Amino acid sequence: MALSRVQTLLTRVANVSLSLRSIVVDEVSVQAQHEGQYEIEGPDIDISPKAAEVMTPALHELSTNALKYGALSVPDGKVTVRWQIVDRRETPWLSLDWTECGQPTAEPEKPRRQGFGSELIEGRIPYELKGRGRLVIEPDGARCHFEFPLKGAPSILETSAPQRATVFGGTLDMTGEFDQPPNTCRRG
């Protein structure tokens, strides 16, 4: 559903950046039991369509896991998401921290393999956004940090196809130019 939401946003208006705050609020608030379970803090910034494609499922996984096993699974638990823009070699980078506290006191079962959320954060962010990501699950809560350069990158939804297709004379014209009607009359 998270991927569907971001793709819907990206396909409505192609090649338009999305609000990071909106993405974070959408993913965290839908899993929280009440508004007091989360704190979101950071500057209003827009991220590229490519960054939104990677960030949305990663934040969705963090939120879903917090609901199943972590801070959002209990009424007194809390998720804090903070981000800032930092300079790395004269390039602005997004630096984001996810912190959970107040999760159930039961010792979480150790995963036997790397989970999907870890792969999104530790695999896709470096590969697709040229950044870094780290997710750590500790007895007192999950902690995640990732950062990547704030530069545009091509979205998988970007194409060079014209926005509209028009039908003239029964054929599909993808160039936007008028078809020349065929000469059906033959003169002797």
Rank of each mutant, 00 (worst) to 15 (best):
R5S: 05
Q7F: 11
Q7P: 05
Q7G: 09
T8E: 13
L9W: 05
L9Q: 14
L10I: 15
L10T: 14
T11P: 07
T11S: 15
A14W: 07
N15P: 08
V16N: 09
S19T: 10
R21Y: 00
R21W: 05
S22C: 09
V24H: 06
V25T: 10
D26V: 00
S29A: 12
Q31A: 11
Q31K: 15
Q31S: 11
Q31D: 07
E35G: 10
E35S: 14
E35M: 08
G36R: 13
Y38K: 02
E39H: 11
D44N: 06
D44G: 07
I45W: 04
D46A: 13
P49Y: 00
K50N: 02
K50M: 10
A52T: 00
M55W: 01
M55K: 02
P57G: 06
P57F: 06
A58R: 04
E61M: 04
L62P: 11
N65H: 03
A66G: 06
A66S: 14
L67G: 00
K68H: 03
L72W: 08
L72N: 06
S73Q: 02
P75E: 03
D76K: 15
G77N: 07
K78D: 00
T80L: 10
V81D: 00
R82W: 08
Q84P: 06
I85A: 04
V86H: 09
V86C: 01
P92V: 10
W93D: 09
L96G: 04
W98I: 01
W98L: 03
T99L: 14
P104N: 05
T105I: 15
T105W: 13
A106Q: 08
E109V: 13
K110C: 01
P111T: 12
G117C: 07
G117D: 12
E122K: 06
I125V: 09
P126E: 05
P126M: 02
L129F: 01
G131E: 02
R134F: 06
G141H: 14
H145S: 08
H145P: 08
F146N: 07
F146L: 10
F146E: 00
E147A: 13
F148D: 05
F148A: 01
L150W: 10
L150K: 06
K151L: 13
G152D: 15
S155F: 04
I156V: 09
I156K: 14
E158H: 07
S160L: 07
S160G: 12
A161Y: 05
P162G: 10
T166M: 12
T166C: 10
V167K: 14
V167P: 05
V167M: 15
F168V: 10
T171M: 11
M174L: 15
T175R: 14
T175S: 15
G176C: 14
Q180H: 00
Q180W: 09
P182H: 03
N183V: 00
T184E: 03
T184Q: 06
T184L: 09
C185D: 14
C185W: 08
R186K: 13
R187G: 08
G188A: 15
